[in-house]
Design a binder for these strands. Structure first.
Lengths: 213, 213
DNA sequence: TTCTGTACATACCGACGGTACGTACCTTCA
DNA sequence: TGAAGGTACGTACCGTCGGTATGTACAGAA
């Protein structure tokens, strides 16, 4: 019955295509394997031949969606020499990527709980997070502060979390363009504050220095 | 068999007790209603008498965990007059609350996907988020910047996202105390930058002002 | 005493994730 | 060339789980 005989790659691609669409539209738990295989016009035997289970095909869709976003952001940031301009370009690209429904649902919403925070961190560590980390390091690491790795990592986490939350707010906003501009302005202002402190040679933010009085 | 006859409040409490524990330990989808009712020594009839379904009992556990955290943070922030000190106290309390396993699993991890981002936002809007919002407004709204509501809301989202991400990083860190200090230092530095800009009377971050060149 | 509402227990259904097994087709090699 | 083995599925089935329908013991009102 299935006319997709003897060409396995197209079957696998079709499954991931349908899975990405359904996971995006209805979320992970509300998407049944029966619906996926029906959409791809195959049976569960085919799915379980190519994937070890529901989580595995979700991961395939996850990877595809995220690599698209990562590539877009990387493309936007390359070519900038000034780290602050690079940060701004990266932020803008991130805010654009996060408005894609697939990214919001699969990566941000279902990703952590389905893959587990462990595997999720591992994946993010090598993609979007890595870009943010690179930008943060080039912007803050170059100064005369002696920020160690742990401290730079903390800054990256903070900025990544801020951007993710901001992206979500932008995505659900009734006027995403205006919301994106506000986010750019706010983060730009935060960056300007840091830049000012850098220029003025304020002491590095050591643990304890700003935690008391 | 169930000796908890004719005392409905204790049954309901026992159900939420067990549900909170199991949801915390195994997550939402990996926790079955059978396990909950078995732990509370009742049957599904009792559960469905008190709650409309799995999502409802999850919400009960969610509310309890979150109200605990909110109360703790509110207790830590009250009594501070200086908004920047208040922000620091609130941040410290938040970083403490977020290390509780129940908060991490139920509120942060499962909350959004189970309740739906809609209901999740509504709940957060009136609890933890409200505290952050109040702090942000008292710290940034009082200056000579003329930040409108939308802009203040953007700042709140950004800080809330940053603190959530930082909290997660603190919680999974091998040395949570040191990680919390780093987060305090980093956010404190960001706040110091903003404070400096405020003092120097830099123009308000209007959309577009910092987004070009 | 009868009636009504509460607070459960019991039995059962349908959906879903996963597994076991069968099979058509292709490639390989004696 | 044909037997053997592997690939790429299809089919049938099972266990679990969320949810429902129904029964029932008991307490208080009338």
């Amino acid at each position: 019955m299935a006319r997709r005989q003897r060409w396995p790659d197209s079957t696998k691609r079709a499954l991931v295509d349908v899975a990405e669409r359904l996971f995006t539209e209805h979320g992970y738990s509300a998407t049944s394997l029966d619906a996926i295989v029906a959409g791809a016009d195959v049976t569960k035997g085919a799915l379980y031949h190519h994937f070890s289970g529901k989580q595995a095909i979700f991961e395939a869709a996850f990877e595809r969606v995220e690599s698209r976003a990562t590539a877009g952001i990387a493309r936007a940031t390359e070519g900038h020499r000034d780290p602050w301009l690079k940060a701004q370009a990266g932020l803008r690209a991130f805010l654009g990527a996060v408005q894609e429904p697939g990214y919001r649902q699969i990566v941000i919403s279902d990703g952590p709980s389905v893959l587990g925070h462990e595997r999720y961190r591992e994946r993010e560590e090598r993609s979007t997070y890595a870009i943010v980390d690179e930008i943060v390091r080039s912007a803050l690491g170059g100064g005369d502060w002696d920020l160690d790795d742990a401290m730079l990592d903390t800054f990256t986490r903070i900025f990544f979390g801020a951007m993710s939350a901001a992206g979500g707010a932008v995505a659900v906003s009734e006027d995403p363009a205006a919301a994106a501009l506000r986010v750019e302005a706010a983060i730009g202002f935060v960056l300007a504050g840091l830049q000012r402190l850098l220029e003025e040679g304020v002491g590095s933010p050591d643990p304890g220095a700003t935690s008391r009085t």
